[in-house]
Design a protein around this nucleic acid. Structure first.
Lengths: 133, 133
DNA sequence: TGTAACTGTGGACCATACTCCACAGTCAAG
DNA sequence: CTTGACTGTGGAGTATGGTCCACAGTTACA
């Protein structure tokens, strides 16, 4: 699949796709066509990579972090132990984000309920949710 | 509390605090002191606000979005219905982030388990986790 | 009353993540 | 073999989220 089709299916612009490629987030193949500046050929795994990028980014990871993340797996020249180490650290960070997210969600739900039904009750206070870790 | 103490307890720099204040994310009071450029006085609610900013930002919200979010509550001159509407929309977005986060976490856990114990089993594929919504 | 430690302001500067553009080469259909 | 739609490259520009700095006014304490 050429860049335009890839951009269409992923919802990215062609410029963004090229940008991600320059940063090493995507690794299209070249298939000879295109002469001196060979055309990039994107595969299904690149679509999945784009999805991982989208989600990771929406969770506040920088492109650099995402690149580091995906680079590790791409070239498997690390020991299994080291990969487990890296991924475990990433997991911890994801889990702490999940916790914070749950705090926010509980707070929002309580606040909406308060607005809807019993505004004379005490207003939910973010601090009370935050303190529960 | 003056800006330096506030910066210390929130872990922000003074410049960042001022930046947030300019963007309307924080609303310190002025207490007369400081002459022509009165000193900003921060209260406990500003510490909580800083925490909300930190979390929201780590979840991928822009400062603009956060400002819109907090501005709505600050000046309560919206109808209850409108506030419920806005907060419900924000809740939906938080919930969808939470779902994506859970997908990532499941995937990472499966991947770590695979690396640790049975690398001869098929490698976990992100797509399988993503497709379950 | 001096002076060190604070304060705000304005403006320059930086990294990140795009976005736009001109240009030139390549392909594929007719 | 022309022509329109594609391609890559390089470079400039933009928005966001800070960060740094010089400057000048203010405060608090000795």
């Amino acid at each position: 699949m050429l860049i335009s089709e890839f951009a269409r299916v992923t919802g990215l612009t062609r410029d963004t796709v090229r940008f991600y490629t320059r940063l090493g987030l995507l690794h299209p193949k070249k298939n000879g066509k295109g002469g001196r500046h060979p055309y990039s050929i994107f595969a299904d795994k690149d679509i999945q990579a784009a999805e991982v990028i989208r989600i990771s980014q929406s969770l506040g990871m920088s492109l650099k972090e995402i690149a580091a993340f995906t680079e590790e797996r791409r070239k498997g020249r690390l020991t299994r132990e080291r990969r487990v180490e890296i991924m475990s650290a990433q997991l911890v960070s994801l889990e702490s984000k999940a916790t914070e997210l749950e705090v926010m969600i509980s707070y929002m739900r309580a606040k909406i309920h308060w607005l809807k039904w019993n505004e004379q009750a005490p207003e939910p206070d973010f601090e009370n949710y935050a303190r529960l870790n």
